[in-house]
């Protein structure tokens, strides 16, 4: 018989905040994954909402390619407000 698949767990700690990855666990299906996530990761009211995602469904970028992959952003300092030098008189901008 197959082993229980791995699920990634994401928790929203309170409304207004995003779901955040907090770890993974094994479960036979999504319902069990949710219940296990509740027992493993929210024993002290750490969450108001849980997402579970089969780990195999996640496509991740490869850190070995980081230099090329993130290169398009690296030379565009004009995307930052500090690139624009303005007179000091201009207080709030």
């Amino acid at each position: 018989m197959k082993n229980w698949p791995l699920w990634e767990v994401f928790i929203r700690s309170k409304n207004g905040l995003e779901h955040r990855h907090c770890g993974s666990l094994h479960a036979s299906d999504a319902t069990m994954a949710l219940e296990n996530a509740r027992d493993v990761y929210t024993r002290r009211m750490e969450g108001v909402s849980i997402w579970v995602v089969p780990s195999t469904e996640i496509t991740a970028s490869n850190p070995d390619d980081n230099a090329e992959f993130f290169e398009p952003a690296s030379d565009k300092i004009y995307r930052h407000p500090t690139f624009y030098e303005l007179p000091d008189e201009l207080k709030h901008m």
């Binding site: 082993n3 791995l6 770890g23 993974s24 666990l25 094994h26 027992d39 493993v40 990761y41 024993r43």
Partner: peptide, 26 residues
């Protein structure tokens, strides 16, 4: 009971962290 349940939780956090290194739970 709560303390022992925490220990189960700690074991599970650590197993899942170990699995990220490419070894299976089994």
């Amino acid at each position: 009971l709560a303390k022992i349940q925490d220990e189960a939780g700690h074991g599970l956090y650590l197993y899942s962290a170990t699995e990220t290194l490419g070894i299976s739970r089994e």
